[in-house]
Design a protein around this nucleic acid. Structure first.
Length: 198
DNA sequence: CCGAGGATTATCT
DNA sequence: GATAATCCTCGGA
């Protein structure tokens, strides 16, 4: 499947399919990091009161309505950057939040951006991941299927179903049921880098 | 180990 | 004016 075809799928399918995908970051000085995506969440449009796309386009959520395969980045709590990849055809507000990843290469580069913290706290959460990889809104709407921006994803073959966990999303706050409990979070079972804030 | 509370600001109503 | 797709620190056990 082409990258465009992959990201054009429903957000749920993209979220599952991104488990095990390789996330790359290359800095201007030539240093590089490679991580394995281990936790994702799906957000869609009017059928999802937890999603930024639940009402209509706004300056912030505009990228969710745009072409699939581009980054959607926003700031949470005025502090933490969140990294999503847009899914579904242009016009449909949908995105997949990259919640956690397991560092494979570039430990030095990652650890120096997460000082005074152990490896398990480097990238085990969406805000931590963006801190570890210097991801901010300068990557807004970059194409994650190609590496020119210095941030890209290489999708891998699907995992076997028994390796995948599924459950409610994190940080739903006052979101009403049933959206509060919809099982739209996926993770790799047994992986230590899955976020621990539930 | 665990739970409570604070940080900090753009965005939306 | 309230809220937020989070993270960290601190106090108590």
């Amino acid at each position: 499947m082409t990258p465009l075809g992959f990201y054009t799928q429903p957000a749920e399918a993209v979220a599952v399919g991104l488990l095990g995908a390789l996330l790359f970051r290359r800095w201007p000085d030539g240093t590089q990091a490679c991580l394995r995506i281990v936790e994702t969440e799906a957000y869609t449009g009017r059928d999802d009161l937890a999603s930024h796309g639940r009402r209509h386009p706004t300056p912030r959520n505009r990228p969710m309505y745009g072409p699939p395969g581009l980054a959607y980045i926003y700031k949470s709590r005025g502090i933490h950057w969140m990294f999503n990849v847009v899914a579904e055809p242009e016009g449909e507000p949908a995105a997949v939040l990259i919640r956690a990843a397991e560092p494979l290469r570039g430990f030095e580069e990652i650890s120096k951006r997460r000082p005074r913290r152990g490896p398990l706290e480097w990238t085990s959460g969406p805000g931590r991941l963006c801190q570890a990889l210097d991801i901010d809104d300068s990557f807004q709407q970059v194409d994650v299927a190609e590496g020119r921006s210095g941030l890209w994803i290489e999708v891998q073959p699907p995992l076997d179903a028994p390796e995948v966990g599924r459950g409610p999303r994190v940080g739903m706050g006052k979101t009403p049921e049933p959206w509060f409990s919809l099982p739209r979070r996926w993770w790799i079972l047994g992986n230590s880098y899955v976020s621990k804030y539930r």
